[in-house]
Computed example of a mutant assay.
Amino acid sequence: MLSRGALRAHLLAARLAGCVATSREASLRSYRLFAARDPRVVIGLDPVGAWGQRELVALMAEKCGVSADLGCVSGHDVIDPGRTLSRLDAFAERVGAAAQRRAPVLIGTGHPHRLLGFYAGLADALSAAGCAVLTPAYGRCVDITTRFGLRTYNLDYVRGVALVREPGASRPGCEPGAHTHSPLPVRTALAAAAEAGGPLPELVVGDHGWVCGAGQLGFEAIGLADIDDPALFVGEAEGVVAVAVPLDDAVRSDYYRPLTRYVLNRACLSQ
């Protein structure tokens, strides 16, 4: 069993929390774009509050432990590991509750290069507990606007985890999928599930647009978020996102394995 203290030490050593690679400049740039309601940063959320940069800095200081000083404009940003642990506990509670009632779940990531293993471990455990891990809209095309223009991707699933690939991309094991913040993949998956007559997920697990897009449509949604992705934390503050866990989402993929073990243990799903 991985203790809370041991996981805290791992978060700091792996720079998942504490002083992280995300720069203060990157965080503030994202907050300015969110305040301007840039869809690249809002990622499917339709906020009702007046979220200017000042309010966002205050929120992120409360939720993540970043500096609340508006005069702090450079250097590495900081995530409080205590806040990460607290929200991981809440995340695990939701996963455990879904497992207890054998709820259908949908799991997806816009960060497959880093986080696929974390989510796949959850999918395996939830499936073993009797949950239907849904895979709607498999192979469906999704048109996403990127900084390079409009790109068409295909919705794919690896070990029960949804992601998008460029058409003609290598199969799993060679190319893990594309990085995207877009809410369009989850909207496509949920629409396909509804068109097929269900089942619809009772819990959506993921990051980026997977969480915000599903939460905005009224689904219970939980996920991981870096400190330059304020949308998930705004969604949590407004009651649209159930749980947002603050951590660096771009470290080595194997650094997330202890988090999987911790969540499954807290959710009483350890195998």
Rank of each mutant, 00 (worst) to 15 (best):
S3L: 06
G5N: 10
L7R: 07
R8F: 03
A14S: 13
L16R: 06
L16E: 08
Y31L: 12
R37E: 06
P39L: 10
P39V: 12
R40C: 13
G44T: 05
D46V: 15
G49I: 07
Q53S: 07
L56Q: 06
M60Y: 12
K63A: 15
K63W: 13
C64H: 06
V73C: 09
I79E: 03
F91I: 07
A98L: 01
V105S: 03
G108R: 02
H111T: 15
A123S: 05
L126F: 03
P136Y: 00
C141Y: 14
D143A: 15
F148M: 15
Y153E: 11
V164L: 07
E166A: 14
E166T: 14
P167S: 10
S170R: 14
G173E: 06
E175Q: 14
E175D: 15
P176E: 12
H179L: 13
T180E: 03
H181L: 14
L184V: 10
L184W: 04
R187Y: 05
R187G: 12
L190K: 02
A194H: 07
A196D: 08
P201K: 02
E202G: 12
G206T: 00
E220F: 00
I222V: 11
D228F: 07
P230N: 11
V234D: 08
V240R: 07
V245Y: 05
V251A: 09
R257H: 12
L259R: 06
T260I: 04
T260P: 05
Y262I: 09
V263L: 01
R266N: 13
C268Q: 15
